[in-house]
Nucleic acid binder design. Sequence first.
RNA 1: GCGCCCGUAGCUCAGCUGGAUAGAGCGCCGGGCUUCGAACCCGUAGGUCGGAGGUUCGAAUCCUCCCGGGCGCACCA
Length: 663
Amino acid sequence: MILPIHAAIRARLHEILTTTFGLAPADLPAIALELPPKRAFGDVAVPVAFELAKRLKKAPRAIAQELVAALGPIAGVTRVDAAPNGYLNFFLDRATFLRARLEGTVAPLAPSDAGKVIVEHTAINPNKAAHIGHLRNAALGDTLVRLLRFQGRPVEVQNYIDDTGVQVADVVVGFREIEGKTLADVKQLADSTRFDYTCWDLYARVGEWYEADKANLAKRGEALHAIEEGGNETAEMGAFIADRIVRCHLKTMARLNVDYDLLTWEGDILRLKFWSTTFEDLKRRKAIFLQTEGKLAGCWVMTIEDDDAPVTPEGEDDPEQREKVIVRSNGVVTYIGKDIANQFWKFGLLGMDFRYRAFTEIDGRTLFATTSDASLAPAHVPPFGKASAVYNVIDTRQAYLQKLLKQALATMGFQNEAAHSTHFAYEMVALSHATARELGYTVDPDGKPFVEVSGRKGLGVKADDLIDRLTNTAQAEVAKRNPALSADESRATAEAIAVAAVRYFLVKFTRNKVIAFDIDEALSFEGETGPYLQYAVARAGNIFGKLREREGLDEAAVTAALATADLAAINTGEDGDELWGLVLEAGRLDDVVDQAVRSLELSVVAKFAFSLAQSFSAFYHRQPILKEERRDVRLWRAAAVAYVRRQLTQALDLMGCDVPARM
RNA sequence: GCGCCCGUAGCUCAGCUGGAUAGAGCGCCGGGCUUCGAACCCGUAGGUCGGAGGUUCGAAUCCUCCCGGGCGCACCA
C-alpha cells in the first residue's frame, strides 16, 4: 500500500505551506499525488507548485525549489527533486518499502467514514433465467461491495425481489392460460426441469400470445389482481414461481462468487404497510399532492424538480409533464412509491421494520429474507437497515426514477440521507450483431450498432449458458496442459477460469459504455482477460513452489533474509529499476481502490490488475530467479515476486476471482 | 422537444480531479520454448483524439456551438 506514504507527504506539505509559506489552512490547495510518467522522474509526483504559482505570483520552478529546501526528512522518502518544469518528485526508500510490506508492518489508513453501507444489486425479476445484462449488474455490485469492505467499511448487501409486478404475473398467465397447468403441475415441472430456463421460454411465448390478440392482456390484469388479493391458487403459483426462480438466480450468482445478506421482497413492503406509513408522511410534508384536474386527476403526484431545466417558453408549459404519478387514480401505488418506502427503510427513517426469515444456507452462512409472517422469525437476526450510506446498483435507464428517489428524501427534510443516497448507474449490455445472429436472430446490418437484450422476447445470452461454455472451453485446455489432474480437479480449475473470464470482462469497461457483448470476444483467454491475470499469479506461485521444493525457502524465509541482503539489486541498474517499478506498481492497490470507490469507476481496478500482471510477465521473462546465482539478487527478485503475487491475488479477489494453483 | 451518455489506431477500449513523448488488447507482419509453464514475452507498421471556436503557461481532458450514434422522458416495473 502506498496511501500511508501519500498521507505522510501530504501532511508534511500542509505543514510547510502553513508555516514557511504562511498560507491559511482554509486556503491550502488540494494536493494531488501522481505517478510520474517515467520511473527516472521519481516515485511520487506532486504538481502543487503549479497551483501555487498563480497565488504567489512566482514561477512554479522557484516554488518547487523553495518547497524542497523547506521539506526536511519524511519517513520512507530518500530524496525530493524539484523538476525544471516545477514538479516536485519524491523518491522512496525502495528496500524499506518492500520489506515493510512483506513483513506486514504497515498499518492501512482508517476508513474515512465508519458507518454502515447498504449496497443493493442484482434485483432480477423472479420470472426467468438471469442473462448477461443481469451479470453486469451483479459483477459491478459485488465488486463494489468487496472494494468497500477492503476499505474497512461495514457493508450490507441486499437483493431486491420484485415478486408483485407484471413479470411474475405473466409467467403465471403462461402456465395457466396457455399451458393449462395447475400449481401441482408447475411444482412437478420445477423439480424435473431447469425451471428458470423453462420460464425463460414460456415468458417469451406469453409476450407473443399478448401480441397475437390484445384481448389476452385481460388475463394479465386478472392474474395481477388475484396475486394482490391472495389466498388463491394464482397467488400461490406466483409465490412459488418467484421463490423457485430466486433460488435459481442465487445458484447462478454463487457460481460467480456473488452473494447477499438479505433478500428484500417487494410483497412484504406492501403487506407490512410500509407504503401506507410513507404515504402519510409524504402527504404531511406536502411532498406529494392530489391532482384534481387534467389527465392526472385523481392521482397522487410528486412534482419533478428540474434544476437545470431551461425556462419553458410562454404558453408551452405542460404542468402534467412535470409531475410523476405515485398513487394511481384507482388507489394502487406505483413501484416508485414502494421504492421510496424501501429507501426510507434503508436509512432507518421509516419507524418500522421488516420481519425476517432464514431463506437458505450458503457455505454455512445464513441468507436472510424479509417476511411479513412473524411465525417464521428465527432466534438470531442481524440488525438490517439503518445505513449511513446507500448505493443502488441499477442501470442508467433508471436514472430518472432514481433521481426522484433522492428528491423524495430531500423534500422530506432528510438532506444528509439524500446526499448519501447514490445511484450507481452503468450502461446496458447489448448483443453484437454477430452474437445475435449466432443466437438465431435476424439482424438488420443498417440498423442499430447493437441488438438490445430483451427478456420479454427471450433474446439474450443466459448467464449459465455462458458460464458453461467458458467452463467447457477452459476445461479442455486445462486437461491438455495438466494431464495428471483428475477430472474433478480440472473441472474446478476450469470453473475458476470461467468466472474470472466473465467477471473481468464485465468490469474492464468503464461503466457508462454500452457493452456490445460478443461471445467470441468473451470466450477468449488471451490478452486482456481474467485468465491472463490468473496465469501470472499461478506462475508467481510456481516460483515459490520450486524454491520450497529445491531449497526449502518460503516467503517468510525470503523476507527474513532480506535484512542482510545487499541493496544493489533493488537500488541500482536497469534491473533494479525494473524490479522496483514492479514493487511500486503493486503497492498502488489501495490508492486504486480509493479512486475506484470515489469515482464509482470500477474498471480502474481491472486496468490496474491487468497492467500489474503485464509488468510482472515482462519481469518474469527478463529477470530469472531460480537460475540467478547471485544470492542477493535472487532474494530481492523473489521478494518482489512474493509481493506482486500477494497484491495481484488481492486485486483478483476484489473482482471476485479465485486463483487456481495450476491452470 | 427536453435530459443523460458515447464518439481516441483496422476492430474493442484505457487515458485518474487539465500537466512531462497519446496507451493497451485483438488483428497484421517479424522474432523468441534444452521450460521459474508460450493462456507468455520482444519488436515493426498503424492516430487531423468527430468538427469548429474559446479559457489556460499548458486541453483527448474544462466551456460553447455543431455533426454522428445510443438511452431515457407511462396511472409498466
